[in-house]
Write a protein that binds this DNA or RNA. Sequence first.
DNA 1: GTAGTTTAGCTTTTT
DNA 2: GCTAAACTAC
Length: 757
Amino acid sequence: MIVPLDMLNEQQRQASVNTEGPCMIIAGAGAGKTKVLTTRIAYLIQEKKVDPFKILALTFTNKAANEMKKRIEQVVGPAAKSVWLGTFHSCFVRLLRIEADRIGYPSSFSIYDTTDSKSLLKSIIKEMNLDDKTYTPNTVLSRISSAKNRLITAQEYINNPIYQQDDEEAMKPRVGEVFVQYAKRCLQASAMDFDDILLNTYLLLNQHLDILYKYQERFQYILIDEFQDTNLAQYAIVKDLAGIHKNICVVGDDAQSIYAFRGANIRNILNFEKDYPNLTIIKLEQNYRSTQNIVEAANGIIRNNQLQLKKNVWTANEKGEVIGLIRATTDAEEGRLVTASIFEIKMQNQLRNEDFAILYRTNSQSRAIEEALRKINLPYRMLGGTSFYQRKEVKDLLAYLRFIVNHNDEEALKRIINEPKRGIGPSNIEKMVVAASDHGIPLWEVMCNAKNFLSGRVAEAVEEFAHMIQTIALDLTKKDAYEIASEIAKRSGLLKSLYEDKTVEGLARYENVQELLSGIKAFTANPEQVDTSLATFLQDVALAANNENEEDGQDKISLMTIHAAKGLEFKYVYIVGIEEDLFPSPMMLGSREDLEEERRLFYVALTRAQKKVFLSYTISRYRFGKLKQCEVSRFIGEIDPVYLHMAHVTNSYTERTNTNYTKQFISSMRITPQQKSVKVKFQAYAQSSNPAFQPSDTSQLKSGMQVEHPTFGIGMVISVELTGTHKKARIAFSGSGEKTLLLSFAKLKILNNSVEG
DNA sequence: GTAGTTTAGCTTTTT
DNA sequence: GCTAAACTAC
C-alpha cells in the first residue's frame, strides 16, 4: 500500500516526511498526532527503505503502542512487526533481558509492581525498627521513585548531603538507609521495580560503552510519542541512544502534560530545542475533532499557564453547542441526571453508546455512575480502575508462576507461602528471612532446609512447599506456560480453596483464576508465539497489566479517569464531580505548577469531546459510606459568552501545617468589564485547634479594580494574613447572583439556556 | 504462633 | 466501601 500522504494537511505532511535530523512535532489536541507518527514510520520503511529493525518507537501506554502497530501494519504489512515499538518500559525490559548479566541480573528477573515495592518497603521499615507512622511505604517509595527518575542511585543518594538534609528537614533522616536496603533486597530477589527498569537501562548504557555503541548503531531512527510525559531518566536514555544518528523525533503537546506526579518533566519538551539547536519544529495547530466552543473553552483554561509553548489551536469546525451544566444534590442524583441526559441525547440523535464517555478525576467516583447506568440498562465499560491483573487471586497465581521462574522473588514468596493456608504464619516467615541474611544464603536455601531453622510442624510445611515448587520448576523447559500454570494451580490447592468458597465473591475469584488460565492457554496456542515458555509469558504480563479484554467490540459507554482518557475521543463527554476537594484535587493546590497541571487535566478532558461537553457537580456526596457536604464554590454574575470561559487562577488556597505560622495568601479572580461588581467574602477556617479563626471580611470587587499580578496575571489580588495554630487553613470566595459557577480554580460563565438539570 | 473476627483509616492521577 | 492492622480465641 502507498503511504497515504495526500490525506494530510501541509503541516502534517511536513511532519511525516521530514525524517532526517532532530525534529519536534507539537501537536495540539485532535490535530492528528497518531496519524502523523504512523505515517512517518510507514514512510521511513516504505519510501526511505529503512530496515524496520532499526526503528525504535516509544509510547507510554500499551494501548497507544498497539494502535500504532496496527496502523503501520495496514500500510507496510508484516514488516511492521520488526519495528521496536512499545512502551518505554517494555522496550527497555526487552533490552535489559538481553544484557542482564552485565549488571548482575539473571535475564529472568522479576518485575515488582507498586504493591510489591510497598510491601517490601514495609518489611524493611519494620526490620529497621523505624516508626511506621513517619516512614510510610507510600512516602518513602515516592521519595525513592523520584530519586530514581532523576537517575540517582541509592549510593549516590546516601552520599549526597543535600538529600540527607532534605530528609532531615522532613523529619525522615533515614530514608537514605531504607533506599539502600531496598535496592539491596531488590537485587537479592532478582527483581526490578518500574523505576529500576529505566534507571538500570541508563546505568547499563553508561557503564558499558560497547553496549551503548551497539544500540546507538542499531537505532537509526527514534520516535517518541507523548514526549511531554517523559521523565529525566527516559529522556536521558533516549538522548544516549540517539547519540550517533541523531534522528530523534519527538511528538507531544505540552498542554497535555498531566503526569508530573510520576516524574514527568514538562521541561523536557519546553527545553528540547536547547539540546538540539538545529531542531526542526513543526506545529500542528488545526483541531479536527471538536467544535469551536469546545476548542475555545479549552484554550481559555490554559491561557494563563506560565509553563507552555506558544501555539494557536484552532478549528474549522462549526461553532457547536455550549457547554452544558448539570447540578445535582447527591452523587446518586448526579448519576441519574447524567445517565438520563445520555439516554435522551442518544434517542434524539440515534447515536450509539460508544459515542458517550463519562470522565472523572478519581476512580472512586465511578461507583455512583455505574449504579445509575445499571439501573437504566445502559451497557458500559470501565477502563483502568482495578484491572484484572490487580485482583488478589490473579496476583496470587501469578506470584506462584513468578516464584517458579525466580526462586529469589521475595515478594512473590510472601504472597503464596501461606495461600492457601499451610500453617506458615508471618512470624515464621520473618524467622526465615532473618536466618537467610544471618547466614548470607538465599531465602530459598533456608526453605529447602527448613528443619535446621524452624520447629517441627512448620518446618515440614515449608519443606513440603519448597519441594512442590522444585518439582514443578524441573519441567520449566519441557512444558509450556499453560501446562505449568494449570499444574501449580491444582497442586498448590489454590483452585480448590477458591472452588470451596461458595459465596458470590468466591465464585467470581474462581472464575478469575480460570480466566487467567485460559489467557495463558491463548498465549501458548498463538501460532505467532515461537517461545511458549512460562518465563516468556511472565515477561509480557507484568507490564501489560492494564489492557484487559478491551477489544470485546461491543457498543458500550466508556467510564474512566481523565488520565486514562488521554488519546481518546467521543462525541459527547460528561465530566463529573467538578467540585471542591475533587477536581481540582486538593493535593494539587499547593503550588502554581501543580495548579497548572490540574488545568491541563481539565484541558485534556474537554478536548476529548467532538460535539458537546457536560460538566456536572454535586452539593453532597457519599464518601467512606458517609454523606459529606461538598462546597461547590458558586459565583454568580454576568452571563455572556456563548462558550464556557475560564478565567485564571485559584479562588481558594489550602495549606496544611502543624505548627504556629503566619501566611500570606494571595489569590485573584477575573472580573469582566460587563460585570459591575461581585461580592466577595473571605473565609479562613482552622480545621483543628484554633477556634479564633472565624469567617471574616466581606468586600466588594469592582471591575475597575483589576490589577496585574506577576504570578496570576490580570486579576484582583487579595492577600489575607492568617495567624494561629491550625491544621488546615483555607480562603474561599463566595458571592451572590445567578448562574455563573466559580470552580475552585476557575470561573465558568454559562449561557442561561445552557444550564440543564 | 496461627486463624478467625472486628475495627480503624483511608483515597489522585499510572507504567 | 474496602483493606490492613489490631484483637481474640484456639
